[in-house]
Amino acid sequence: MTIVDLRPSDDFEFKPGKGSVLLIACGALAREIVDLIERNHWEAFDLQCLPAKWHNTPDKIVPAVREKIRAAKAHYRSIFVLYGDCGTGGQLDALLSEEGVERIDGPHCYAFFSGNAEFETHSEEDVTSFFLTDYLARHFDKLVWSGLGLDKHPDLLPLYFGNYQRIVYLAQTRDDGLERKARAAAEKLGLGYEYRFTGYGELETDLEQRG
């Protein structure tokens, strides 16, 4: 596996890695993707991650994915995108259709970690649930609490979370420390708590088909 840098620059010479398949992924999935690649000894993949924080500014995702695809296309047998729609309002799928590139199935990582069909079966009961993955549990204070300004304006808590009833922690790994963080996040938001172990779900099965 090679971590490939595709920084856009007029004078930057693109140098592909050794793999034949490029994965363009959300940075929030980086740890899980690297673990799967190393554990399964998949040698076909190179990996390029975009900043996880762009979930707060999804307008940046589509232009960056377009640039990555066009810089890399001639160097790889195929490119596979590991993003859900992720707030792009269908624009990511429109781009991928235009470029002839596939992405993992599902609207977001909560669905493909759970399994899209399984996630759908819980859709009605989860309408008032706020989801955490391992990544979000690990970085809750930075990405959610501080990211939404609740550290400085806790009075905004009802505005952001008043319609939620519980946190559902979709765990990719069995990690007591992360579960404690997820429980602490629920307490901090004044919400109920539920734990569901998902493993890597369809992230693993989709990569296995291409590895």
Score class of each variant (00 low, 15 high):
W145K: 10
D175R: 06
G177L: 13
K152F: 05
I167P: 02
L157Y: 04
Y160D: 03
R174I: 07
K188H: 06
R180W: 03
N163C: 05
D176Q: 13
V144R: 06
A171R: 06
Q172R: 11
G177A: 15
S146P: 07
F161D: 05
R174A: 02
V168H: 06
L178Y: 07
L150Y: 09
Q172N: 12
L178A: 02
A186F: 09
D175P: 03
G149A: 04
Y160I: 02
W145T: 07
Y160P: 06
R180Y: 05
Y164T: 03
V144K: 01
G162K: 08
K181A: 09
K181I: 05
Q165G: 13
E179K: 11
L159E: 14
R180Q: 11
D175Q: 00
L159M: 15
R166S: 04
R180N: 08
L157R: 14
Q172L: 06
D176S: 13
V144N: 01
R183E: 09
D151S: 06
Y169G: 02
A182F: 06
R174V: 05
E187H: 09
P154N: 15
V168K: 11
G147A: 07
P154M: 15
L178G: 00
P158F: 12
D176Y: 10
L156M: 14
A185P: 00
L159I: 14
D176I: 13
L157E: 02
L148P: 02
P158S: 13
L178S: 01
T173K: 10
L157D: 07
V144A: 09
V168I: 12
A184M: 12
Q172W: 03
Q172Y: 09
F161H: 01
W145F: 15
A186V: 03
L170M: 08
D175Y: 00
P158E: 12
D155I: 14
L170C: 07
L159W: 12
P158C: 13
L156D: 11
K152H: 13
R166G: 04
K152I: 08
A185R: 01
R174N: 00
L178C: 00
W145I: 10
V168L: 11
D176L: 12
A171F: 08
S146M: 13
H153G: 13
G149I: 08
E179Q: 13
S146H: 14
D151N: 10
L156F: 14
L157Q: 12
L157N: 04
L150W: 06
T173Q: 09
W145Q: 08
R174K: 09
K181L: 13
V168D: 04
Q172S: 12
R183A: 01
L159G: 12
G162Q: 06
H153A: 15
L150E: 11
L157W: 05
